[in-house]
Design a protein around this nucleic acid. Structure first.
Length: 593
RNA sequence: GCGGGAGUAGCUCAGCUGGAUAGAGCAUCGGUCUUCUAAACCGAGGGUCCUGGGUUCGAAUCCCAGCUUCCGUGCCA
């Protein structure tokens, strides 16, 4: 084939959303015409250092090593087989990197093609949609949600949104801790103190917590009270109607308080099947695991060992306690079965604290053996774990008197702090507008602070840092969006409007912004693959800084129609990606700040 | 004891799973508003990537050993 015909082919080639996929195909195609390469060759397209280009293919080096060839010579040969294109320039560098520098033609055509919501959604959509259950938030009933629940709730919601964006079928299931031993003490307390659950005052969940504390005291004070608490629990578990009614009421009060928080955070669940839902399904689990000889009795408890595992050969997975009661291991097994059989879940993603890693490793191993014995392939199970939120003292965050911080208080404080900043900058703004913005900015800051750091690490909680306008924060991103909105107000148009494009030469900051926009799909894929929202956050922050540079150096609303139109296109795509990305993070944006 | 995280600028963190001269923000110092929001932007200084070995064209990233620190480790979740 001649170079001319190659070129012809490229003119008709469709531009893909993910440029790295496109380049990978180009390089692979070129490799087929070089006899040295075979199917194992992976071009390894990566984003490049701006000094060298926009993307680079690293794959020749490891391939040459394996084949015992000179990498530089092999790259030269491959490069010659890559057809000329007016979409990019290629160059060879170093020991054998192939660099791609995208042309202005490519930038403009790409931006034009992916300038609206529908086009990017359909471009990113996975061909095979999966049914994925997200198990997150999962607070215990009869207690208020505290700061310890925030990460699961925010990360779980964000990942759910991300999967939804990729076109998967997402089921959000709040696996409530509603069947624990806490109910014995609570029921005792309610009965001893003669409290009516219908009349707990303005803050019923706080009252329940107090009753629990009082119950604990009763149990400590008097041995017979402890026995009574146990009796109440057994009565509940055996279906005593009075206790069940109380338990239902407690659950209702708890859900009301959770919903207030979920409303604030804009989190919605498809199901809230707690541990209690599985209480009549655990016997079947015992029977099955016993029949498959996966579990055995040990010290009176029913346990699973994994002899092939260095640690779980000795460390048991206890599925039935020696007193005959089930625990969370049992309900988690029953839950896998239910989600698989009733919902046809293909994947289940658990979002919990990293301290539960052993539990989930053991659960996953047990499920694997169980389903293997049934000769069925189980759903894929993933544990998305996260670190601890630390206070100033680098220890798990607590109030001054050592109590866990109530989540509702934390969220309210975020809103209050945001309010102060808004009023400081806009003293004449009316109250309702201040309220509205404070909610968006304050809650956005809290969410972003959590999502923007690698979830597997502990992080230090800092109001000043998360609400700052400089650096990797939600308000900084929201400010960029507000400035773009401001430009469109002046232009008397909308970001969604269609803009004519005129291929012009680009200033440095314009080019940088285009380049960053091109990376959006690459980052989305990385985020969903690693289940780490901070990749997306880092990208959105960089996109915002590149926009800010552009904004300061290039006036959009200029006389020259071509330049104006092109810059509006850039603004339009920037705000589209920012808003899309932030929506995945669960963060709202504003017209004005 | 065993197992698992973490250790990168004074501080808080990134670093695309082995790529080119390790990057941001804060803090410090200096500059930019008659302009679409200066809540911003531009620039400067700041590094034994915990230590020591190893693997190779190439290591913050992989393997081994050690140090510091956090967490888990039989009836809580």
């Amino acid at each position: 084939m001649t170079r001319a015909s190659f070129l012809l082919g490229y003119r008709t080639m469709l531009i893909e959303f993910d440029c790295s996929v496109q380049l990978s195909n180009v390089v692979k195609q070129a490799a087929t015409s070089c006899e040295e390469f075979n199917d194992e060759f992976d071009p390894q397209i990566r984003t490049a250092d701006p000094r060298f280009g926009d993307f680079q293919a690293n794959g020749v080096l490891p391939f040459a090593k394996k084949a015992g060839l000179n990498p530089r010579e092999l790259s030269e040969k491959l490069l010659k087989s890559i057809p000329l294109s007016d979409y990019w320039n290629t160059s060879l560098a170093g020991p054998g990197f192939i660099n791609f520098k995208l042309s202005e033609k490519y930038f403009f055509e790409w931006a034009k093609k992916f300038s609206d919501k529908q086009s990017i959604r359909s471009a990113i959509k996975e061909k095979k949609s999966k049914k994925v259950v997200f198990d997150f938030s999962s607070p215990n009933t009869a207690k208020q949600m505290h700061v310890g629940h925030i990460r699961s709730t925010i990360i779980g919601e964000s990942l759910s949104r991300l999967f939804d964006f990729f076109g998967h079928q997402v089921i959000r299931d709040n696996h409530l801790g509603d069947w624990g031993t806490q109910f014995g003490i609570l029921l005792l307390s309610i009965k001893k103190l003669g409290v009516s659950l219908e009349d707990l005052g303005a803050d019923p969940i706080a009252k329940l917590e107090e009753l629990y504390r009082q119950g604990n005291q009763l149990v400590k004070d008097n041995e017979s009270n402890l026995d009574e608490a146990r009796t109440e629990l057994v009565k509940l578990q055996n279906g005593d109607s009075e206790n069940l009614t109380l338990w239902e009421k407690i659950k209702e009060i708890s859900m009301d308080s959770f919903l207030k928080i979920y409303d604030l955070l804009d989190v919605k669940f498809d199901f809230s099947l707690g541990e209690s839902f599985y209480r009549d399904k655990v016997d079947e689990i015992y029977a099955k695991l016993l029949s498959f000889k996966i579990c055995k009795e040990d010290d009176g408890a029913l346990v699973v060992f994994h002899p092939e595992h260095k640690r779980f050969a000795k460390q048991p997975f206890i599925i039935r306690k020696s007193d005959g009661a089930s625990n969370y291991a049992t309900t988690d097994l029953a839950t896998v079965q239910y989600r698989f059989e009733k919902w046809n879940a293909e994947e289940i993603i658990y979002v919990t604290d990293g301290r539960q890693r052993d539990h989930f490793d053991q659960l996953f191993l047990t499920v694997k053996k169980w389903y293997s014995a049934e000769d069925i392939s189980p759903p894929k199970l993933f544990h998305v774990w996260f670190g601890t939120i630390l206070g100033d003292d680098n220890k798990a965050i607590k109030t001054r008197d050592g109590q866990p911080i109530k989540l509702i208080d934390l969220l309210k404080e975020a809103i209050e702090r945001a309010k102060l900043l808004i009023v400081e900058k806009n003293p004449s703004l009316d109250c309702s507008e201040v309220e509205k913005r404070a909610k968006i900015i304050g809650l956005g800051a809290v969410k972003y602070a959590d999502l923007s750091q690698d979830r597997t690490l502990d992080y230090v909680f800092s109001w000043d840092k998360m609400l700052a306008m400089q650096g990797n924060t939600a308000p900084y991103l929201q400010y960029a969006v507000a400035r773009i909105n401001s430009i469109f107000r002046k232009a008397q148009s909308q970001p969604e409007d269609s803009f004519n494009i005129f291929q012009t030469s680009l200033s440095e900051s314009e080019r940088n912004l285009f380049r960053k926009l091109i990376f959006f799909p690459v980052v989305l894929k990385q985020t969903v693959k690693e289940l780490k929202p901070h990749f997306l956050c880092t990208y959105l922050y960089e996109l915002s800084t590149d926009f800010s540079s552009f904004y300061n150096q290039n006036k959009v609303m200029v006389e020259n129609e071509k330049i104006r139109s092109n810059r509006l296109l850039l603004c339009s795509q920037t705000i589209l990606f920012l808003k899309t990305g932030m929506a995945i993070l669960g963060i709202e944006t504003l017209q004005e700040m």
